[in-house]
Design a binder for these strands. Sequence first.
DNA 1: ACGCGCGTTCTAA
DNA 2: TTAGAACGCGCGT
Length: 191
Amino acid sequence: MSYYHFKPPGLQAHIFLKYDYQNSTKTILLHELIMFKDKNEIVKISKVKELKPTDTSNMAEQEILEKIERLFVDHFSGKLVDLFAEIQKLNVELDVKSKYKSEFAYNVLEFLIKVKPGETTSYYEIGSQIGSKAYRAIGNACRSNPIPLIVPCHRVLKRNGEIGGFMGKNSDNEWETNLKKEILMLEKAKL
DNA sequence: ACGCGCGTTCTAA
DNA sequence: TTAGAACGCGCGT
C-alpha cells in the first residue's frame, strides 16, 4: 500500500491518495482519498497506516498518478472535470466495493456519480430516488464514502438549502464545512 | 428547538 | 453470533 500527495492550486486542502500499484497489469487500485488542512496531518496518517510514499523510480506508476493529479488541478482551476468518468479512462480501478458493502449504501453511490460538476442534489432527493426515507442514514452512507470528490458527496445539500455536514463535521465554521462550500464555489454550483 | 425515522455500528450478553 | 441500544454530512412541525 502506497500514498501519493499533491495540492491543487486554488483549493485550500491537500489531497492524499491511498492506493496499490499492480505491476503485472500496470494499474492502480485506488482505495481512499483523504483531504487535509495541512501537510503535517499527512505525515501522521501515513505513519499510522504504515504507507510507503510513491515509488518515483517506477515511471508507469508515476505517470498514472500525475494524470490523476492533472485532472484535479484542471478541475479546481475552473475547467470542471467529471472526475469519476475521467479517472475511469486511466489505468485506475476505484475500490468502492470494500466500503460500500450494503445494498443501501451502493444505491446511494450509484445516484451520487450521476451528479455532475456544477449541479447539486439533496439528501431528500436521494431518498426519493432510492425509495427510502432514511435521510440520516443516507448522510452516513455519504460519510463512509472512501473517495470523496471523485464520488461527489460534497454536492449533497440539505433540502432547506443549508450546507449540511462534510467529512464527519456538521457544525458551521468547521474547516470541513467551509471546504465543502469552497469546493462548490469552485464548481460554480448554485447555493 | 424538539421529536421522529431508519440503516449502520457499537455493545453486551 | 445475536439482540438491542446508540448513533448520525436530516426532515417536518
